Amino acid sequence: MALSEPKSLKYADILKELRVSFFAMNRLTSFPWILVENELQRNKSSDLISELLQQTCLHPLCQKFPPSVRYRRLFLSELIRREAADCDPLDQLYDALAEVLGAEEATECYKSYLLPSSDAVSLLESVALISEGTTGLVTWEAALYLAEWALDHKQVFTGRSVLELGSGVGLTGITICRSCSPHRFVFSDFHPTVLQKLRDNVHLNGLSNDSSPVVSVDELDWTTVTEEKLREIRADVVIAADVVYDPEVAESLVKLLSKILSCWSVEVQPEIFICSTVRNPETYSSFKLQLENSGISQEVMTGPVSQVFPYNRLSPIELIKLYR
């Protein structure tokens, strides 16, 4: 059932793209609405709208982990706007809209990121980008990119102990735990509200100290953590995403990375991967210069990654591997 469009997406592809974007609360303007409209005009029925509703607002995942009330309201309004004019109105669609119109908006909502295995990583996130003085209560682009890179390079994590710095709400780490079979995974952060949200999300996704992999959530102050603590963690792989956004934070990170690398001999040093959205080139260049001045070498990891999650791919993102 091909559509006469340049990309020639099939009916099932339209459903999949909208489902993935809906649960991740991707921007509604990025949805393939023109393809939806063309299919509706071609079929002259509301079957596609009905199926889209089943795959989004009426899906069991939405019942368990619903996106924000405002987002669902806007999404349903878009579906209503695109209903074929010569088709009977779909009662389920208007019933779903009536339900969200009567719901109260909260300060938190769920975002679900669908994995290639058809499993989902569901996270409770803040509706606001900055909340309680921190940006750590939402998922950022570099975390999504690093998760995609991990899915393409599972061998880096399989059977190994992994430490994640600045885990935030947990998207990257939970994806690795779900898909890459690490032996042990240590999530870490410092802000108390972020740590509590992180623990909630780890638990939400069925991970614990008794699960496989063995998982823990640790408070880690980059400025005071001891070499003894780092040796206790004994990570084979260290990762971090979107942690180079402030000059002071970048300086603390470089000192921490130096401490991590000094804990072991060159032969047994962990692999370290830092993924950054380069929002401020000056801050990022300063971070890389500090690495160089600390004797830490870097290698930019090039090559495409499989596009699994919906997010803004126009942002400049760089993944580097560090070693001494």
Rank of each mutant, 00 (worst) to 15 (best):
E104Q: 04
P270K: 09
L322V: 00
W33D: 07
W149V: 00
Q196G: 02
G133A: 05
L230F: 00
N205T: 14
S294D: 04
L253Q: 05
A241C: 05
T56P: 00
L146F: 02
I176V: 15
R231A: 07
S258P: 06
Y245K: 03
D221G: 03
V214T: 13
C109Q: 12
P310D: 04
D236F: 05
L314H: 14
S117M: 08
P6Y: 13
N26Y: 02
H153G: 01
L28P: 02
G170W: 01
K7V: 08
A24I: 08
K44T: 00
S117W: 08
L146C: 00
L76E: 06
D88Y: 12
H183K: 15
L163I: 00
S126D: 06
L115W: 14
E104S: 04
E292Q: 14
M301Q: 09
I239Y: 01
A143G: 13
E78M: 07
N209Y: 09
E292H: 13
D119Y: 10
R42H: 05
P60Y: 13
K197M: 02
L163F: 02
C177L: 13
W264Y: 07
L314W: 09
A103H: 04
E164C: 02
R42V: 01
N201H: 05
D119M: 10
S252F: 00
S181G: 03
L124W: 09
G102I: 04
T158G: 12
D200E: 13
S265D: 14
F273K: 09
Y145W: 04
L114E: 08
K7L: 13
L144V: 10
V254Q: 10
Y323A: 09
P67M: 12
D189H: 10
K7G: 04
G102R: 15
L18W: 07
A12R: 14
E251G: 00
L291P: 02
D200L: 08
C62L: 09
S8E: 11
S258G: 15
Y113W: 12
N38V: 06
E227G: 15
Y113I: 02
V243W: 10
T107N: 12
D236W: 06
R160C: 06
H191A: 09
A84I: 07
L115S: 15
D86M: 10
L165A: 14
L195G: 01
V100L: 08
N38K: 15
A24N: 09
P213N: 08
E105R: 14
S179R: 08
A150F: 12
L230S: 01
P6W: 14
D86F: 14
E292T: 10
S68H: 11
A24E: 09
R199C: 06
S112Y: 09
L61C: 11
T175C: 05
G133D: 03
D246V: 06
D91P: 15
K7A: 08
F287L: 10
E227M: 11
I14Y: 00
L253A: 05
C177V: 10
L15E: 03
Y323M: 11
Y110A: 04
V254C: 10
R27E: 13
V169P: 02
P192G: 02
D242Y: 08
L35I: 03
L151D: 01
A85S: 15
D221E: 06
T277C: 11
A106H: 11
